[in-house]
């Protein structure tokens, strides 16, 4: 729910376990308490998609029995697998452009036991004018970070489990050639297309590929996206890294982004998310400003985490 600064302060003072998203100027004014937060000025609110620096978005985690918070840098971010509750939910917020995002995004797919510990979250960002800094907040200490991930560990009652899922409008075109990459990287020069080594930027150019379409990888029937950030001087920069040995194809063209996104949301409208994050590209390309997409409420983000870092995806968690 979107709340005023005073309402957020009252919620914090009540001792509730909270996840808060908002503009840096507001987050900086919150008191210490049982909360974590991240910067964004775009939200999926009950009244519709909205850009605001006047309000904060708050989720209350009243399903949890206990919580603890930790901040991690690039050298120890996967310590979260050791630190979490045996039956819990981990909510991670990482600042956009930080080395911890880079580390997490490249290595999470290979981290032992990460899939046994439900981990959801988002990459905090800026308004699109570039004002301010992307930050993650540890409300328990009152500290904010531009270079660390903040994780809230939530302990679930016995007999309950966290189930993370996603909404993605993209699928691959199986007729397209398979693209693989020699290394896990956020910036790519060479690739293998059906086994032939090529410059990835040249390949995109010569094939006339719309770089607004993400690369997608098929994870046993679930499609995960890698969005292209830019192409310059023969290099392709990405919002999430391609992973070595994963097979990618470009997404099949989506003719009407908004219609497709809303159709997928409607198809999933019976779920009961306790936390939800939606990509800024979905917000912008799906024309979500002013549009209601219940039951999916939460921050609009600069990268989404459903165990690993994703792009152009809506992620959510239910307690079952």
């Amino acid at each position: 729910m979107l709340v005023t600064l005073d309402e957020a302060i009252a919620l914090i003072k009540s001792g509730k376990f909270l996840h808060i998203a908002g503009d840096e100027a507001l987050l900086d004014r919150l008191p210490e308490g049982n909360w974590i937060g991240g910067t964004t000025a775009f939200f999926m609110a009950s009244g519709g998609g909205v850009f605001t620096k006047e309000k904060l978005y708050v989720d209350e985690f009243d399903f949890a029995e206990e919580m603890k918070v930790a901040a991690y840098g690039k050298y120890n971010v996967f310590q979260l697998v050791e630190d979490c509750y045996e039956n819990g939910l981990n909510v991670i917020i990482m600042p956009y452009g930080s080395e911890v995002v880079s580390k997490y995004s490249k290595e999470a797919p290979e981290v032992e036991e990460l899939l046994l510990h439900p981990t959801i979250g988002w990459v905090s960002g800026l308004d699109l004018n570039g004002d301010g800094e992307a930050k993650a907040y540890d409300g328990t200490t009152g500290k904010s970070y531009t270079d660390k991930a903040v994780v809230m560990f939530l302990k679930l009652p016995e007999g309950k489990a966290a189930q993370i899922n996603l909404i993605n409008i993209f699928e691959d075109d199986k007729a397209d050639p398979v693209i693989t990459f020699p290394e896990s990287s956020l910036s790519v020069e060479s690739c293998l297309v059906d086994g032939q080594e090529l410059n990835f930027a040249d390949y995109i150019d010569k094939k006339g590929i719309d770089s607004g379409m993400p690369l997608v990888a098929d994870y046993n029937g679930v499609y995960l996206n890698i969005s292209i950030k830019g192409i310059e001087n023969g290099r392709v920069d990405l919002y999430a890294p391609v992973i070595k040995n994963i097979e990618y194809r470009f997404a099949a063209r989506v003719e009407d982004y908004e219609k497709e996104f809303l159709a997928r949301v409607n198809a999933a409208s019976s779920v009961r998310p306790v936390l939800c994050c939606n990509c800024i590209i979905n917000y912008l390309n799906g024309n979500l400003e002013g549009k209601k997409i219940p039951p999916f409420l939460g921050p609009v983000t600069f990268g989404e985490v459903a165990y690993q870092l994703l792009n152009q995806t809506l992620v959510y968690c239910e307690i079952v």
Binding site: L115, D218, Y219, N220, Y307, Q308
Partner: peptide, 10 residues
């Protein structure tokens, strides 16, 4: 289940 699919894929 997303995690189960990711695990199978891995």
């Amino acid at each position: 289940n997303l995690a189960f699919n990711m695990l199978i894929s891995k």
